[in-house]
Every structure is written in structure tokens, then in C-alpha cells.
Write a protein that binds this DNA or RNA. Structure first.
Lengths: 174, 174
DNA sequence: CAAGATTGACACATCAATCTTA
DNA sequence: TAAGATTGATGTGTCAATCTTG
């Protein structure tokens, strides 16, 4: 039924949300808006980095060799190649990464975390993880956390069916 | 302990995430990035509206008199007054809302949903709700939905302690 | 002086166009 | 022709400054 409604744009017979559904969606909407904003604010304030920039550096820091192809990094950060390219430009200007042509495939570009970038992660990651703990992990019981994990998996599957699952990650510096 | 870490910026001893915690945070991160993007894309494609614009119109459509003060509307949409002001300018240009000075308090401005704005909501809301259903509500069991609601409440409390809870809502047109 | 709201400058994301190499 | 990546134009959010009224 829902399929038909989705397909049929503004066809009639909308199934409105009942009070419980509405309350749940309301709460989730709040998280969708406020949690990213809070994490962005923390990173911006403490490290002068956006969430996306942090994620890119974190991914590189976790990779053996601290090197990734741009297209790989784009997937890992849940972002478009175009967006990553712009961000890489800034990060390179700040000295956190360096870009170099691949020898085997000259179309490809490798992003490499510099020593300065590594130091930045070492300095930044603990504070960021502490905030993730405070706002999410430690705010929930283990059972709630497990429930969130399951529910998030279902939602992701509904949003992008057949996606190999989300590769994004947190924590870095080790 | 966490409190101390949060307060102490990049003080030592980071408590990294264990595998379960990491997996849960990973899944939630994916939702944080992909779900808003998917909803934005649907609204943009089907109605030429951003999520925020839709929310503003929806709030007005649900209010008796279809009128709200700018500052009220800002709170309801989880946005800054500045952001709302910019958006209101666009919505007014498109003929969906109208702004008029309040008679009682001449500092205040009232945003009023026009007939065209109302029609827009009537045409847009069913499709949007259908997508919310498909991606979230109907993707979860009732028990999961309840768990999400509880967890979201806890997270919001951790993000902004003492906030009166999120006023954002969906559905409109009735 | 504080509250309500607006404005302009700047930063970032998105999209389409482009360029190079497989 | 497709894959990998970059670039520039455009639109929107954020922040600080400003204006007006209580």
C-alpha cells in the first residue's frame, strides 16, 4: 500500500501518523537536527574542523599507510566525490593531507595523511569521542543501544535498499 | 568520568568505543547522514521545497488561524531566527506566506499561510508522509518504534539538558 | 538595555560541465 | 565510452552587525 502511495506522488488516501507514530517521528526528527549540530559545534569550537573534515582525517588515520584513493575516501565518508574534492583542497592547504597521483592508474589520486594531520587527529579524537559518549553511548542503556543499532539498520535498508551498509566510522588516533 | 573528559577537552585517557558501541554509533551515523538527505531529495524533487521550508509551511498549516510569530515559528522548526527570516523571504516571494506587523507588539512579525501555501501543503503532505512511513515508520516494528522514541528522548536530553523537548512535527494538510 | 527581527558577508554543499586516462 | 577527479556557478546556512520597539 505504501509502495503505491510513494509511487503515486500525491495520489489520494494519505495514511497519517497515529499519535504513537507521530511522537516517535517527532523525537527522531529532533535527533536528526540537533545531534549533528551539537557534534559539529563541538568539533568546530575545539578543533576548527567540520564533522566531514574530521571524518575524512579519521578514515585516513585508521588506514594502514594512512593513504586512500579519493573515490574510496568519498564512500567511507558518505559524501560525494565533488564534496570531498573541495574539502581535500582545504585540508591540503592547512597541511593535514597531501594528494599525489597514483603510479599504477594515473586517473586516480591518493590522499595521504601528513604528520601534521596525524597529530591533529591525536589531539582531536579523544575530545570528540568523549562527546559522542556523553551524548549517545552513555546516555543509553546497553539494551537501548542495541535497539538503536537494529532500528538504524532497518531504516538504512529502507532508505537505500541493497546498500552494502554504512562504512562511516568514528574514533581514530590509535 | 565522562563529564571530566568532556570538560577537559583533550585531556588524556580517552575511553574508546568497544565493538558493540562502535557498531551502534556507526549505524546511527549513517541514519544521521542519509535519512535527512533522502527526505530532502524527495521534497525537492516532488515539491521544489527543502525540508526546512516544508516544516515551516506545515507548522503554519497546523496552527488555528494559520498564523505564527516569527520567533515562535523558529522554535517550532528547530531553526534560528536568522535562518527562518531568509527562508520566509523566499516563501513570501513564491506566494506561500505573507508577513505582517503585529498590532499589539510592533516589534513582532506574524507569518501567515496564504491560500496558495495551504494548497501547496495539501498537495505535498501526503507524498511526504508516505515517504516517512516507507523509510521509518513501516520499516520498524511497533516495539522498535517505541524503543527509538525512548532512545531519541534520552539523546535529546543529553544533547541539550533541560530542553522542553523537541516541538518539531510532521503531517499537515488536515 | 533587552527582545524581535532583518540584512549582508562569508563559508560550505550541490550540480553540471569539464578534463584526463583506462 | 566509462571511470576518476576537479572546477566554477549557484543556492542556502551561519554569524555578526544593525535597526526598531518594549
Amino acid at each position: 500500500v505504501v509502495e503505491a502511495e510513494v509511487a503515486g506522488e500525491e495520489s489520494g488516501d494519505p495514511r497519517w501518523l497515529d499519535p504513537d507514530e507521530r511522537a516517535a517521528w517527532l523525537a527522531l526528527s529532533g535527533v536528526l537536527i540537533r545531534l549533528p549540530a551539537a557534534l559539529d559545534a563541538q568539533l568546530e569550537r575545539d578543533a576548527g574542523l567540520s564533522n566531514f573534515e574530521y571524518l575524512a582525517l579519521a578514515m585516513l588515520s585508521e588506514t594502514p599507510g594512512r593513504t586512500l584513493r579519493m573515490s574510496q575516501l568519498a564512500v567511507l565518508t558518505n559524501g560525494s566525490l565533488s564534496r570531498l574534492s573541495h574539502v581535500a583542497q582545504r585540508l591540503e592547504r592547512q597541511g593535514y593531507i597531501r594528494r599525489e597521483q597514483s603510479a599504477t592508474d594515473r586517473r586516480s589520486v591518493q590522499a595521504v595523511l601528513t604528520d601534521a594531520g596525524w597529530d591533529k587527529m591525536v589531539a582531536t579524537a579523544p575530545g570528540h569521542v568523549a562527546h559522542v559518549r556523553a551524548m549517545v553511548i552513555d546516555a543509553l542503556t546497553p539494551a537501548q543501544l542495541a535497539a538503536v543499532r537494529d532500528a538504524a539498520g532497518r531504516i538504512l535498508e529502507a532508505v537505500e535498499p541493497g546498500s552494502p551498509f554504512n562504512p562511516a566510522a568514528e574514533t581514530a588516533g590509535d
